[in-house]
Amino acid sequence: MTRDLNLMERLPMKNNRLRSIYSVPYAAWILLFVLAPIALIVYYSFFDLTGNFTLSNYRNFFTSVYLQLTTSSFWYAFLITLFSLLIAYPTAYFITKTKHKQLWLLLIIIPSWINLLLKTYAFIGLMGLYGPLNALLEVVGIGKQQILFTDFSFVFVSVYIFIPFMILPIFNALDKLNPALIDASRDLGANSWTTFKRVVWPLTINGVKSGIQVVFIPALSLFMITRLIAGNKVITLGTAIEQQFLVTQNWGMGSTIAVFLILFMFIIMLFTTGKERGATGNGKNR
């Protein structure tokens, strides 16, 4: 993204010092609320229950239990992200086409302001054997299904939680899309799919990437839903950390899992920013 980097040089800066003064609050935040807690977590991860220095927490992480937790966390985070994207993209696209698009967008966010635990209880009622959803299934002739405590209910409710986070950045990307570009592509004889693939998608890729980041990363450490909606049939790293901190009070092991979560996140970031270059490349070829 050399384009952006130039942006800075074009800004009429009197001097760098002035610019850095503005960055102080953000830098202070990183120092106090990101680096300091990480230092603390890394520090704790080297201690066992009795407060002795040890590497055993790290050794423990490589036992089958935690590796299994890691793969299942990634698998579910992937599913949640995929379905969020599949549902959010058309939603965002159609909203940009509505008359009162800003209002509709706000109406997408409002449900997320009602307490999550309450909404989860509502889902337990809605998806229950005697709930409205099953009543509907029965009317349609499919008959009663066990919906709660399945992979379906878990992914469904998780997507429900994350969907506004996916819609917003995609909407922002789509909204500024110049309709003339699409018309031009059509005039040049491209069909809808080609137009989407060659014109719309590359121009919205940054929004999509933001969406993926704010869905996939927190989905790795989901908890609560794993218990309430999946009945502990899905267990993620987040659940394991919560247990270690609150129930077992093994802060060392909890911190170790957190260290790995952060490492995974760094790897994901590397991966997605690597992709970024490719996308811009495409854009330039256009």
Binding site: Y121, G125, R227, N232
Partner: peptide
């Protein structure tokens, strides 16, 4: 069927 916490009250009350 599931391993859960306090939500069990609602599930039992609902006949779930």
């Amino acid at each position: 069927k599931a391993v859960i916490g306090d939500e069990v009250t609602q599930l039992m009350v609902n006949n779930e």
